[in-house]
Amino acid sequence: MNHDTLKHLTLLLIHLGLLLLLSPFIHIYIKKIKATLQGRIGPPVLQGYYDLAKYFHKETVVSNQTSWLFSITPFIVFSTTITAGLLIPTFSSKEFIVPLGGVILFIYLFSLGRFFMTAAACEPGSSFCSMASSREIMFATLIEPVILLPLFIFVCLYGTNNIFEIVNQLSNKGITLYTPTYVLSLIAIFIASLAEMCRVPFDNPETHYELTMIHEGMLLEYSGKQLGIMFLSSWLKQLIIISLIANLLFPWYTTPDFTLASISLLGVIYLLKVLVVSTLIAFIETTVAKVRLFRVRDILMASFIMSIIALVISVYKGKGLGI
């Protein structure tokens, strides 16, 4: 094995380790900030890890109506999510070994996980699970075009499908990067991402009430280890999306040298970027109320129109339209 491949593999392992280890922390961090803003103390910072350990030590009970599909789903959701995690840069925007795929694969891997999750949620025959599943799949039809269009704008502007490459090109632009097209697209991505991460104003990750639940509702019949894996996957997905936004927002400091100092420095910078975006999410969650189920369309459509405006600006820039 030559030296370069070894380097890439090391970076890959650090990348995976960061995603897996950081995701429970970020989930609790958002909760903690929200609690602080609301004048509560909030959970201890390590609560996410305690929770996972608790789920893994509990007995797993499944409904007797379920089949192999229900039991296999947590593993599939986890593996598709972590694979999607390989398609985005975290602390390093260097490609891992070979190009794996771009934005389309990234979004479609989440869809693959969602297909299994929604189908399996209907298995126990509980009305709460199937309702949540039906709502989740309806949301997906709204989220997918809205998150794809702004990503496509980046793809078209930078002539590449690869998210690593997009971030590298963005970082070369320096501070001139914040053009109107860029800002509008990023806002659109951010809004759609909130929905994809199942957060307020689209879904409330804190409740199990049947009127509000969407993502959590699908997990109702899971228990023990399976539930633990499901939670880990959804926290992982949240961190992956936050990392994507963070690296699009601050694309700098993502090309480490292969030294311990450089890698740990960029690791800290990456953590800071993620914390900034997470704090922003916590602020939004405390100031905005969850919208009615069928009003979700209006918010997402607004975000879609924002990205269309971004596209129009990028096409007609400097062509005498006064933009």
Partner: peptide, 26 residues
């Protein structure tokens, strides 16, 4: 303008297709 917009609408049909086939399979 047409290219990216139709591409994202194609993404939309993919998502509705998933909804249809989750419904059918389930």
């Amino acid at each position: 303008l047409l290219g990216p917009i139709t591409a994202s609408i194609l993404g939309f049909t993919g998502a509705v297709c998933a909804a249809v086939f989750v419904k059918t399979f389930a």
